[in-house]
Each structure stands twice: as structure tokens, then as C-alpha cells.
């Protein structure tokens, strides 16, 4: 995903609160319930991405280390000085 897309997304998201101020139809649940939904939405979206990013980074470093190791093993040993 390009960074420009994310920047645009955030810019648009910033426009949203202006509209939200006018929210007169906020349904008849408690304010607390509304925030619980928003909060858990963010939590459930971010948590897997965080976990996977962590695991991905860890595996990637392991793989790169291994590939470097094998590259080194494949090169002919330099003659002893």
C-alpha cells in the first residue's frame, strides 16, 4: 500500500469528526456502549496486525540470517594467507 493512500485516508478521516459533531441520530444506547464498540473495533483490528507484524519480523530476520549463512557456506573458502 502506498503511503500516499494512507495519507489521503487519514486526511479524510480527519474530516469526519466535523460531521460527527452533528451526529444527532446517535442511537439510544449509552455513550459508554458506543465507545466500547469503537474501542474494541480498534483493538481487534490492531492486535492481529501487531502480532503478525512481530512474528513476521522475527521470521524474516531468521530467514535472512539463514540465507546469509548459506550464501557464506556456498562461497569457496578463501586461500589461507
Amino acid at each position: 500500500m502506498s503511503r500516499a493512500a494512507l495519507a489521503i485516508a487519514f486526511a479524510l478521516a480527519l474530516l469526519v469528526p466535523g460531521a460527527a459533531e452533528a451526529c444527532s441520530v446517535c442511537f439510544s444506547t449509552t455513550e459508554e456502549n458506543r465507545w466500547a464498540f469503537i474501542g474494541t473495533t480498534v483493538f481487534m483490528s490492531v492486535l492481529p496486525l501487531g502480532i503478525l507484524f512481530g512474528i513476521g519480523t522475527w521470521l524474516r530476520s531468521k530467514v535472512l540470517e539463514m540465507e546469509r549463512h548459506h550464501e557464506a557456506a556456498r562461497l569457496p573458502t578463501p586461500p589461507a594467507p
Binding site: T29, T30, A36, T40, F43, M44, L47, I51
Partner: peptide, 23 residues
């Protein structure tokens, strides 16, 4: 990898708890 599933299972439970509690 199994723990990822389990972590999300607990995330779901915690979220459910948070939402019901807020009601």
C-alpha cells in the same frame, strides 16, 4: 501460530466482555 489463534480468541472474549459491561 496456535497461540496467535488463542490470542485472538481471548481478544474476542475480552472485547465481548467490554461491550456487554458497557451496557
Amino acid at each position: 501460530l496456535f497461540c496467535v489463534v488463542e490470542a485472538m480468541l481471548f481478544a474476542g472474549l475480552v472485547s465481548a466482555h467490554t461491550i456487554v459491561r458497557s451496557n
